[in-house]
Amino acid sequence: MERSRVVGALADAIGLSTVVIGASLSCDPRRFGTLLGLTGVPHRARAVGLVDLALGTAILTSGRAWPRQRWPVLVGREVLHLVIINEYRHLDHTQGVVAMSGLFVVDGLVTMLMFQEETKPRERESRGKA
């Protein structure tokens, strides 16, 4: 399997999991927030869920349903990871901080690979025009 297909599949996996988690937190922030260790204020878990839902949908549809690159949305997802890490830190939930930090690193690698894949054709086109 070529690299661009692998990177695309990884981005799809991130997008799909983001949609599922976002929908769960949006629909029932108390139950799913508790499962994820986001206890406390349910409206914060719902807000994270709504942003997750929007980002996941954008990750899955960018480049398909509308002509946008996926890497900027993946960067947005990375920013949300930092927000969630901070929420776990405030809740003194060490496992959540460690788990989200791991996701931050893994998703960050996929984001960098996607950036390389999506900007590569433009670099070739710009060289050909010069």
Rank of each mutant, 00 (worst) to 15 (best):
R64D: 08
S126A: 11
L103S: 13
N86Y: 03
I21W: 06
I84K: 00
E123K: 13
D92S: 14
A54C: 13
P72S: 09
L35T: 09
E125Q: 08
H81Q: 07
V41C: 07
H43L: 13
S4M: 00
Q95M: 01
A47K: 03
G108Q: 05
G8M: 03
E118N: 07
R44C: 05
T18C: 07
E118I: 00
A11S: 10
T61M: 11
V105W: 05
V51H: 11
R46E: 14
M114N: 03
L109P: 12
L103Q: 10
Q95S: 15
T39R: 06
L53C: 10
V79W: 00
H81W: 03
G33E: 07
H90K: 12
S4A: 12
F32T: 08
V106D: 03
Q116T: 12
L38F: 00
R3A: 10
L36K: 12
L103E: 12
V19L: 04
G96P: 05
R46Q: 15
A47G: 02
A65T: 09
G63S: 02
R89G: 14
H93Y: 04
D52L: 02
M112K: 05
E118C: 08
G96C: 05
R44Q: 15
K120N: 05
R124D: 13
V48D: 15
L35P: 11
N86S: 14
D12F: 09
G96R: 02
G63Q: 09
G102M: 00
A45N: 01
T39M: 04
V7F: 00
T61H: 06
R5L: 12
D107S: 13
V75L: 14
V106L: 12
R77Q: 12
T34Q: 15
A23Q: 07
E78K: 12
G8C: 04
G40V: 03
M100V: 06
G49C: 01
M100F: 08
Q69E: 08
Q69K: 14
V19A: 05
V20I: 08
L25I: 06
A11I: 02
A9C: 03
R30K: 10
G128E: 13
R31L: 15
G96F: 02
R89S: 15
R64V: 09
K129R: 15
L82D: 00
A58K: 01
W66I: 04
W66L: 06
P67I: 04
R31Q: 09
T119E: 14
P121E: 11
E78Y: 10
A11N: 05
V106M: 04
I59H: 06
D28Y: 04
V19T: 07
D28C: 09
G76C: 01
L113Y: 02
L103W: 10
P42F: 10
G49W: 02
